[in-house]
Simulated assay, not measured.
Amino acid sequence: MIEKLFKAKFTTTGKTIEQLKAEYTDFLPSDEKLQALLEAYQNLDGVEVIVYERRFVGEENYGVFAWDESDKSIDDKIRDFIYQAEQDDMFGSYIDDREEFLADWESGNYSPSGSLVFEKSDIEIIEELKKGV
């Protein structure tokens, strides 16, 4: 259950390839895929979103709840990040298939296999949102 929502912005410009590699435990993507993912992270820097706290045993992070889809530049950055995440060889559904991904995205038929989750260091909280807003 989501208890609190926050207006936040991404602080992802400082990520490195080494940090991305450390997030993988079973299968390490190619350097080419990691570089593309790193660029997608950097492209998100400064984008404002609505997030919620996720707390599980041993980890605390944020899940993306929503963003301003009417702002094409924001929606495009989120879309491009998600496409790069879909390149994961174990969990991706659109590996090297940008055309199908874009068609599904534009038609509203895209359905992610998981949540967009970010480390606390990737998010700067701007303010807690009041219920009903």
Rank of each mutant, 00 (worst) to 15 (best):
D122T: 04
L102P: 03
V49Q: 10
V117Y: 02
E69M: 06
E39T: 15
N109D: 09
I74A: 05
E100H: 14
Y24N: 00
F91K: 14
F27R: 03
A66T: 06
E124W: 01
Y62E: 00
S111V: 13
V51E: 08
P112F: 13
V64Y: 00
W67F: 08
Q19Y: 07
K131N: 11
Q42P: 05
T12N: 02
D71K: 02
K21E: 07
K15G: 01
M90A: 06
I50W: 04
F6A: 12
K131Q: 10
G92A: 00
G132W: 05
K72V: 15
F10H: 12
E23D: 04
R98P: 01
R79H: 12
D80H: 12
N61K: 15
F10C: 06
I123T: 09
F81A: 05
I123A: 10
Q84G: 01
F56V: 14
A40E: 05
E3N: 04
K7Q: 13
K21C: 00
K15E: 12
N61H: 12
D71V: 06
N43C: 11
R54N: 03
F118E: 02
F101L: 15
I82K: 12
F6M: 13
Q42R: 14
K9P: 09
I126N: 11
F27T: 09
Y52E: 11
S73N: 09
D89K: 15
V51L: 11
G63A: 07
Y24I: 00
I125C: 15
I125Y: 13
F101D: 13
G92L: 06
G46N: 11
Q35H: 03
V47W: 02
E127L: 07
V133G: 05
L129V: 11
N61D: 15
E106Y: 08
E60F: 08
T13I: 14
D88G: 07
D71P: 01
N61F: 10
G46F: 13
L37S: 02
K15H: 08
R54S: 08
W67M: 03
F118C: 08
V49P: 08
K33F: 03
K131Y: 12
E69A: 06
S30P: 02
I2E: 10
K131M: 12
W105N: 02
D45F: 04
G92V: 06
E59M: 13
E39Q: 15
G63L: 00
I74R: 08
R55C: 03
E128W: 11
W67T: 04
E124I: 03
D122Y: 05
V64K: 01
L34H: 04
S113E: 01
A103I: 02
F6L: 15
E69C: 04
E124H: 07
S30A: 02
R55V: 02
S73C: 07
A85C: 04
E59P: 05
E99N: 11
K120Q: 13
F91H: 11
D88F: 10
D31K: 01
S115D: 06
F91A: 14
M1D: 00
L116F: 10
D31M: 00
E86T: 12
F6Y: 15
E106N: 14
Y62I: 03
K33Y: 02
L38C: 07
L38A: 07
W105A: 03
Y83E: 09
E127K: 13
K120Y: 01
E127F: 05
